[in-house]
Design a binder for these strands. Sequence first.
DNA 1: TTGTACGCGTTATCAA
DNA 2: TTGATAACGCGTACAA
Lengths: 330, 330
Amino acid sequence: MANMSDVAKKAGVGISTVSKVINNYDNISDATRKKVLAAVKELDYVPNAIASALSSKNGKRLGLVVFINNHRQAIDEINMQYIFGAFQQAKEHNLDIVTIFSSVLQGKSAKELDVHFRSLRIQSLVVYGLHKEEFEFEKFIKMETLPTVVVDAPFSGEKMTSVMVDHQKAQYDITQKMVKEHVFIDKILYLAGRRDGYVTDLRMQGAVNAAMDLNLDMETQYSDFSEKKAYQLTKEFGEQANLIVCASDLMAIGAVSALNDMDIFRPVCGFDGITLLGYIDYEIMTVKQDFYDVSKRAIDEVASLINGGAGHAVVMDYEIGHIKYEDVIM
Amino acid sequence: MANMSDVAKKAGVGISTVSKVINNYDNISDATRKKVLAAVKELDYVPNAIASALSSKNGKRLGLVVFINNHRQAIDEINMQYIFGAFQQAKEHNLDIVTIFSSVLQGKSAKELDVHFRSLRIQSLVVYGLHKEEFEFEKFIKMETLPTVVVDAPFSGEKMTSVMVDHQKAQYDITQKMVKEHVFIDKILYLAGRRDGYVTDLRMQGAVNAAMDLNLDMETQYSDFSEKKAYQLTKEFGEQANLIVCASDLMAIGAVSALNDMDIFRPVCGFDGITLLGYIDYEIMTVKQDFYDVSKRAIDEVASLINGGAGHAVVMDYEIGHIKYEDVIM
DNA sequence: TTGTACGCGTTATCAA
DNA sequence: TTGATAACGCGTACAA
């Protein structure tokens, strides 16, 4: 397999000249550039990403850190959309993605994480599904030793960007909308997510504000993003409320399932807009996020950080509506 | 960050001695091994995977090739289970996984694929979702330049192993079972997968054999693994049949949905055992595969190939039954 | 059993 | 605008 020195010989130039052409340096004459590119084509030369990563200091290798605890959690479409979106967009920016599931990082201290990423020659990070219990990981990224984009956690800084929808506003909006579209709502049951989730707080605040502004009573329960728990909580508190607002679609489905078993009707809304909703025979309003797009944006942002951009907070769009069966089958 | 030479100095040994300790060579005295390991611990030394990959010829880097056509397909849980299972098991074998979505490989000739993987220093492959139209990729893996495990495609050889359930037998079994569990079945509608799918043929043969052995009439239609198409085909052919056998769960759901709209009942069975089935209010029997386990096994097999094992065909277990809502909520 | 020295394929520095 | 050459960190003949 041809390497740079082969190309250099064939083109009749120095080896470092080839490197400069490959990496689009501008101080190269058109003539030599052409010679080199011709040789590249002729020899089917493809740069060796490993050798490049070894010698280079600046950032083509991006770590994609996905927090998943067990393989049953891996059934959800959200992470797949995140991962796939990231890979698609990484192609555009010519970034090499190193996929890292959180299980590999378990038990590592902030310092060990640093060493780990360094040893993998990773020069930037995009993080999905981070939650509050990952103390060491959080400490590590806050050292900002690597440019980092965090999806769905409210961290930003000099070299750190957050990307997410405005969860608080979205939860506020959908709660208001549910109240307005139904009559006689005076008591809300709010099923929140996990205590250790970053978005949990944001969404809850949105619901609290909405209830306050509408002057409505609201019962709040943590449901851990668990469908089963939402089922149980609905059985326990569903009857007294006349609107059930859930912090995730799965929980909304659990609530609906309980309502069916209780043989009573309550309007229910969820959050996220997952495909599964299209299969549920119950009108569940939701906050539709485009996870694929969010992830692409996260990659854009990390590319920007690598190129010297400053960290900031990116707010993505959402849309309130229903997921219909006709839209999800293909 | 400490490197081998730092460790060597601290331990008072040569640099290659460190390398040998790290890689578990046996011709090292216990005394020096201890010294080295102590130095490793003290310096928080972690081997640099990149440098190792660059210099070494033998196989720690594994390419995980996932064929996905468009990002809407990324909703399926199957690939996520495959990917997660692979990463989990790769940890056990100390393999570095390089995730590769098929979109990166599009339009590449067999030779270009070879160059591509070489440039990534990939020394073995596990392939998911391969189908018949990937001529160049198929040509490439059949060159057997890399030890390869193919999931759900019937390829094996000197250095190539296939891992899958016995699709033919499974489809045969479930078809027979459906017929036996219902009375008055004399005509089957079989909704097959995509013409270019490798498992499509196997499953279809199973259904054909079952119908033959039972002396039943069977109408077969290609439904492209598409829920929508299954819906349409069921509308067209569902009434004349009294049993609908589908080559995938999604198609089974499409069929059920059509039956509901037609307001008639027909027993329906699917294939795969995806979580979504638990949410469908219709008894759909299916062939349950454990994708997570299949993928782990695929990694075991590739590790075996790397260690000199010969290629062969691995047959995984399946189970016929229902997916119940109680089992899928958590 | 241990250590020296070269090779892996780049990138980066600096002199020309 | 170009091209030697020294890193980058590790594996491995080969010599000791």
